[in-house]
Design a protein around this nucleic acid. Sequence first.
DNA 1: TGTTTTACCGACCACTTGGTTTGTTGGTGT
DNA 2: ACACCAACAAACCAAGTGGTCGGTAAAACA
Lengths: 204, 204
Amino acid sequence: MEKNLKRMATMHRMQVTGLELFYKQGYYNTSIDDILKSLSLSKGAFYYHFESKEDFFISIVQSLIAQKVYSMLIEPIEGKDNPFNVIANCLEDALETAEHNELDFGFVLGNFISEFNGKNPEIMRFLKDILKIWEVNLISILQKGKSDGYVDRHVDSGGVATYLISSYMGIRTMMVEGNCKTIRYNYMQQLRQYFKMLSQKEIA
Amino acid sequence: MEKNLKRMATMHRMQVTGLELFYKQGYYNTSIDDILKSLSLSKGAFYYHFESKEDFFISIVQSLIAQKVYSMLIEPIEGKDNPFNVIANCLEDALETAEHNELDFGFVLGNFISEFNGKNPEIMRFLKDILKIWEVNLISILQKGKSDGYVDRHVDSGGVATYLISSYMGIRTMMVEGNCKTIRYNYMQQLRQYFKMLSQKEIA
DNA sequence: TGTTTTACCGACCACTTGGTTTGTTGGTGT
DNA sequence: ACACCAACAAACCAAGTGGTCGGTAAAACA
């Protein structure tokens, strides 16, 4: 067993508050000093654990964001149930989380993708990878839904997956404009109608 | 006639390249010097015309972004035709514009809303106002579509408007991830299906 | 017990930031 | 010919920025 316990603990603290501030204020608008001040740590501590600000952020993406996206948006929709139900419930949960001002990692992802787009290809790679995993997972569960008789066979799984992710990202952008509850309600309403349209048609 | 011609011209030049750089690199990641360098102008010129960086950006929002959103996303959908057709065509046009790396102002708007959310309430107000105008306009054209017999009477216009804007914002976020053409095609496909669902049902 | 190693401090560096101030200059009215 | 002023140039400033570096207390190891 490694004696890295202290090390890991400190790094993790830095990453957690780092993510919080980066998310709230933006990466470029958040200085390392900001993070260290709110942790009562010094520059020395930071550069002892991380090579650079960029390296630090990438470690956050990999150890925090990736895991959360996985546990909140991917794991919950795996199973044998009707894909439309589990997906809708999953997204509704995420939106509710978002409404309570907690970190909603689907949106965190989209937010950072906007911020780094065209500015930092290195970081973009990591972010896009996570997005891709989400997308692939949605596609596969939709495909399984077809063989299980939940999803109409003519449905374009890739198209639906893209549409789901994008509408979700977009609705989260809209939710910052206030009146979250109404927006969320409207969105879920439209989503379930959309899903009804894609469901396996009964034999007429 | 005022001799403000020179003044207006210079201000406009600053605003245009300002918007371009702010959009490409982000507001906080773009310095005034960046803008001035690419214009071969000096600090003196800038602070002669504008009070501050913030004031400068607000002037861009009001004189450039607002107008463009209006001319690209609002004016084109006014008329007596089937709202679903004109909206779909309008959004498709915007997405095509975006694909050619030109400024797509619906997305510019969403992008800045993300960047300033929680950071600058002053600027947020201006951005949200424009978004609101877009939304209200969509709602009103959908309502008119009902009386004209294009839109099913049970459709929740507000919900659809929100859904339209958000899915559009989201799809634009996705498009930065490459493969724009496929994503655009998928999106339009799903959108038109969605619209079909909301259309006036023929008397069965 | 003596010696590394770990984890951290804090002064310091070169550089950039938004913003100020003090010029300079070419056109305009008189 | 004159003063005048819009429209800019350019040096300058304080407050940050990411990053470096020498030092150090305490724990781990020998």
